[in-house]
Design a protein around this nucleic acid. Structure first.
Lengths: 256, 256
DNA sequence: CGTGAAGTTGAGTATGCTCAACGGTGGTGG
DNA sequence: CCACCACCGTTGAGCATACTCAACTTCACG
């Protein structure tokens, strides 16, 4: 980890990215009839919960690369994703970056801790979100305890997922990490009703590396390995077909 | 990671550990006046919450090495620690182990996900805990929404801590990991009112390694490095004195 | 069609792991 | 009570995995 030049270059990049891409966020009125909105909250909430949430929601649009909020900022809003992909990042002083998660339609952000956000949230692709002010959300939860219960369940689920990621980062090999990631993407795609085997990978190899705790080159190498072994196929670098998810599963679990 | 012999040996160890140490758990009536119990829940709960919790609690005692519950088991109870240290473990098929956290008096376990436990819980030292049946806890939370709110806050805090651990495992060097760990232990010791600099390390080097995603030998080497550099001192391997927490802090953050 | 970012591939290397030996320590049984 | 034994921790030597650095290719976008 002794590449001061790269690290400093990267800090510069990352810092400059903020003014370059602007922090302005478009706000529009909530779209009452929007079907995507229903899909968004479908996670664990039922129709009544969604109606309640919608009453305090406003809509947010982000372009690719735009920052929704930064680590340490006062956490005034809860968000849910209706369209697009986001990444949650933590930065070290020398520019090393760890992505703690990717978010897709239906996911919530801002549940970790209380006072301030524990990570930055950035758009990987163009995104639309719903924004709920915590101040009003608290009132809402007081009135509808079931809602708090559901959000709490989502937080607990995220905690379990974080612990899976801890196992991955602490004990899995590079191949196992990439296989786990592909399967995770497949599962999320399937849950959102996409046809079997095909997954979209909207993030760059660098994003994947910063999520899996690896260098981008290693990601690349392992994906070609998998391709040569007939595990996956692809034309674009961003559209993959998992040909043998069972075999990938075995790799991800460290069996061989 | 190609040490089939060791891995298999280790699986055998771990599997045999369960019958060897027995799964029996002593249960006693809750001790109404126990001052430790107060300390236990002091985390984020106020006196009223503690009284409510106590009404459904029973007490549990574990000897060192004993398993409280195993990964995948039905999660029927929430626990809080009143005395001792526990570790939360996830195992891979070939015996690789990741410890997702250590627990000390005042900590809760069993908040992650819903149906079943996402990890095993094992006593590092002799422990006493309080046990709350989820079935009754749900009733309690329905009656006192504030209680659910507090437990939810604890879960959110754990989520933020898990994300810190993800950064550590994904992007920090061995030295940075060990420095971070020592400071984390110091913070927890301080929060429980121990005098400055001194920390007890009840877990083995192997536990530390499985928590930090490293080999035990590396842990050992880095602790001697720190000792030679005057960062820490010690007589026992299990009682350390942090002489220069500021310097350790800089290391933990990757500054130099 | 040109340009810059992203991705791929190769060569060399460093960090941390494996394997092994040894020293200390606490618990147990003779 | 002492001796033994197993476990834990430490240290050393060699090595493997994945990183760094660099060149080249592909792709998206203007």
């Amino acid at each position: 980890m002794n590449s001061e030049h790269l690290d400093i270059k990267r800090v510069a990049e990352l810092k400059s990215a903020i003014p370059r891409q602007g922090r302005r966020i478009e706000l529009t009125a909530p779209c009452k009839a929007c079907p995507v909105q229903r899909a968004a909250a479908a996670a664990a909430l039922d129709a009544a919960d969604i109606d309640h949430l919608r009453s305090i929601a406003s809509s947010v649009t982000l372009t690719a690369g735009q920052v929704l909020f930064s680590e340490g900022e006062r956490a005034d809003y809860l968000y849910s994703v209706t369209l697009g992909t986001l990444r949650l990042c933590k930065l070290m002083a020398d520019g090393r970056r760890q992505i703690t998660g990717f978010l897709f339609p239906g996911d919530f952000l801002g549940l970790a801790d209380n006072e301030s956000y524990a990570y930055s949230a950035e758009a990987v692709t163009g995104c639309t979100l719903l924004r709920y002010p915590f101040a009003r959300l608290r009132q809402l939860m007081a009135a509808y305890p079931e809602l708090e219960h559901k959000l709490c369940a989502i937080a607990r689920h995220e905690l379990a997922e974080a612990q899976d990621q801890i196992l991955l980062l602490g004990r899995k090999t590079a191949r196992e990490r990439v296989a786990s990631f592909l399967l995770q993407m497949l599962e999320r795609a399937t849950r959102r009703g996409l046809d079997g085997g095909r997954i979209a990978v909207p993030m760059t190899r660098e994003d994947m590396g910063d999520y899996l705790g690896m260098a981008t080159e290693t990601i690349s190498r392992i994906l070609t390995e998998f391709r040569n072994e007939g595990m996956i196929s692809s034309e674009n670098a961003k559209d993959l077909m998992l040909k043998r998810p069972d075999a990938l599963q075995r790799i991800a679990e460290g069996l061989r």
